[in-house]
Amino acid sequence: MNAELLKGHLDLLLLAIIAERPAHGYAIIACLRERSAGAFDLPEGTVYPALHRLERAGLLQSRWAPGAGRSRRIYEITALGAEAMQERRATWGAFARGVQAVLGGAL
């Protein structure tokens, strides 16, 4: 899938994954790839800047936690993040239904 197309929705996808349970970057990206069946295949290193931005915006918070011989940064969603995710999910749902309705009619 076009990476530019994905970028517009990356925040919602990240928030949705992290809302399920706190996770470190590697697990978040693995989840993104697995659930999309490889369709969301963007350079993995470019997801971290998005996580940092969401944290600066107060939608995520993070902390170091001991991992397999290394410290790992664990991200979890904030109350503000959960609220933002619900709003964006609703917006996306309306948008997707609209697109589907048009495509369904055209096909």
Binding site: P43, E44, G45, T46, Y48, P49, A50, H52, R53
Partner: peptide, 17 residues
Amino acid sequence: DRFGSPRTVARRFAAEA
């Protein structure tokens, strides 16, 4: 390769900032 080139990653951090 999957992570992206150092320049690509650094530029994304700069852009996000």
